[in-house]
Design a protein around this nucleic acid. Structure first.
Length: 577
DNA sequence: GCCGTTTTCGGCCCGACTGTTTTCAGTCG
């Protein structure tokens, strides 16, 4: 069930942008940004709160609480509407282009009346930006490159957005009378990092009630096509959703067919042909007689082709069919295998929730251990000091004594500098149970320099995990240019784990690099990088990515017992070197 | 607009990088 918090967060963030674009008070804009983030990460549903309750949320004062209440009551906020009237929606969309912020967006609109990405591209090509103050040749290049990036991510949405939407739709349709089965398929079921459109399947005798319920769902902006077997809609956020209703006996074949990938299915159909069979979304048929052989479950379809059931996350034609035929499919790591999270934040740095709240939420998830890893001082904006982190350690130790079932580890997220150095000297790092080290700056160093800094970080005997190793942000920034094989080799040699950061806009390492790293013998940590208690469940997306990289439980250090994990954290490899 | 061991005003994450300037604005993390 979607929470109203997300709508409120989006609206306040929009208002913050509009304040900036119109040249309003920068501190006011930041106040709205902070309130938006706090509401997005708040544990309670804002729809359940009155003004006083809303004011309990950090960074929400009287004014914002009243605006939120206004929104919950009327569906709009007058001040936001007023601001929207002054700035066309396209101007705000321009700020989605990397390196183009609110100031430049406003200049483009004010001086050249540019209010869409397309208009911007045209204007650049016509050389109309040349005369603008603050815009030069390099700026034009960077903007075009930024547009390119934006378009690559294009109409695809993040895995988390797609999951939330799909679960809502499945929940709705499951409640319709006559529903035998309901679920989603497509690249979402394969847990690809982004999803183009959603495929929802229903097994039922009669399709009409489902088509009707589907097109009437809130959030449906337009019905693109409506038939007996298939209906397609576009949501108000621009996502296309296809609903297919199948006869119950075709469920397995339909699920298999619509899950894909295309390449995986082609391989399966070729196998079917060799068995004198024909595979379609309705079943596996005898090629000659046309009689149905199997169709009810995916397992039967795979079995009849001589294969074990192949997990959806492997269905990318990356060798899974051959491995299945040999009986060598990996036993993939599952979310339930994860015994702890090794990269999380609190409000001591840029997290939203206090230590106690994060720890309570982690305990709720049944973890055996949990690491708190706030930012170290070199990420200057966090203002970390030795005193603050040591005081936190005392609180962590105290809480650890009180939490019977779950061991707390005190760690930090270090910042890898341009040369591969980190924030604190060895003797200070010695005091941490665990150190994650990540790249947060110097994304444009050349390949040799990037490789060198990452290898050096691995060689630091106090660095246990390389956080979000490529630094990419999906749809916003490509990963750094480094010789990853050299980095993987260094990880394996020194006993440094690579993180699979589960945050939906990172998913870093990406799946293909995970496969490569595994061949070097690297171990991995699947972490949420949570900045609020609500982010802890992001872990599922990291596990999905790990599965797409063919990882087993043994490859992932945070599925291990605490004793085995502590052995890994001694990092004998790097110390011996 | 929010917040307070600096409490009703006056701060607010701070430094670096980039490209465009010719001393700095804009963007980012």
């Amino acid at each position: 069930m979607a929470r109203r918090n997300d709508e409120v967060e989006a609206l306040l963030a929009e208002y913050a942008d509009l304040v900036q674009i119109t040249g309003g008070d920068a501190f006011k804009a930041r106040a709205y940004e902070k309130a938006a983030r706090a509401i997005g990460g708040y544990h309670a549903d804002v729809a359940e709160l009155d003004v006083d309750g809303l004011r309990q949320i950090p960074n929400v004062g009287r004014s914002i609480a009243e605006k939120v209440a206004e929104y919950l009551r009327t569906g709009t906020i007058f001040m936001v509407e007023e601001a929207r009237a002054r700035v066309p929606a396209g101007v705000r969309e321009l700020t989605a282009i990397p390196t183009l912020g609110p100031k430049k967006a406003m200049t483009l609109y004010r001086d050249l009346h540019i209010s869409s990405v397309d208009q911007l591209v045209d204007a650049i090509k016509q050389g109309r930006l040349r005369d603008l103050r603050g815009f030069g040749e390099k700026t034009e290049e960077r903007l075009l490159h930024g547009v390119e990036l934006l378009r690559q991510a294009g109409d695809r949405i993040l895995l988390s957005t797609a999951t939330d939407l799909a679960e809502e739709i499945v929940g709705e349709l499951s409640g319709v009378r006559g529903c035998v089965r309901c679920g989603y398929a497509g690249s979402l079921r394969r847990m690809r990092e982004t999803v183009g459109d959603l495929d929802v399947l229903v097994a039922a005798e009669r399709s009409a009630p489902f088509m009707e319920a589907f097109t009437r769902m809130p959030g449906v902006a337009e019905v693109i096509a409506g038939g007996e077997k298939k209906t397609s809609v576009r949501t108000t956020r621009g996502v296309q959703v296809d609903l297919r209703v199948l006869p119950p006996h075709s469920w397995g074949a339909g699920l298999q067919y619509f899950t894909g990938s295309k390449a995986h299915n082609i391989r399966l159909r070729e196998m079917a042909v060799r068995h004198q069979l024909k595979l379609s979304e309705y079943g596996l048929f005898d090629a000659e007689s046309g009689d149905v052989v199997v169709s009810e479950t995916e397992e039967e379809v795979y079995a009849r082709l001589g294969l074990p059931w192949i997990p959806p996350t492997l269905r990318e034609d990356r060798g899974e069919v051959a491995a299945g035929l040999r009986g060598e499919l990996p036993e993939l790591v599952r979310t339930t295998d994860i015994r702890g999270d090794l990269h999380t934040h609190t409000d001591l740095s840029d997290g939203l929730a206090p230590l106690e709240e994060m720890v309570a939420a982690a305990a709720e998830r049944g973890y055996a251990y949990y690491a708190v890893t706030d930012h170290a001082p070199n990420l200057y904006m966090q203002r970390m000091t030795d005193e603050k982190i040591l005081a936190q350690r005392e609180r962590v130790r105290e809480l650890d004594r009180r939490h019977r079932g779950m061991r707390l580890l005190h760690g930090t997220e270090l910042n890898i500098d341009a040369e591969g150095g980190v924030d604190w000297p060895g003797e200070f790092l010695e005091g941490f149970d665990l150190c994650v080290a990540s790249v947060h700056s110097y994304f444009d160093l050349d390949r040799a320099a990037q490789t060198r800094r990452l290898v050096r970080a691995c060689e630091n005997p106090h660095v246990h995990v390389i956080g979000h190793p490529t630094g990419r942000r999906i749809g916003r920034r490509p990963g750094i240019d480094a010789d990853l094989d050299a980095v993987f080799e260094a990880c394996a040699r020194t006993g440094t784990a690579l993180e699979i950061n589960a945050h939906p806009d990172r998913l870093d390492l990406p799946d293909e690099e995970i496969m490569r790293a595994r061949r070097h013998g690297v171990k991995f940590a699947v972490d949420s990088d949570a900045h609020a208690a609500l982010h802890l469940p992001y872990l599922r997306y990291g596990v999905g990515t790990a599965q797409r990289g063919w990882l087993t439980k043994d490859d992932v250090i945070n599925t291990w017992s605490l004793r085995r994990l502590r052995g890994f954290l001694r990092k004998e490899g790097a110390r011996a070197a």
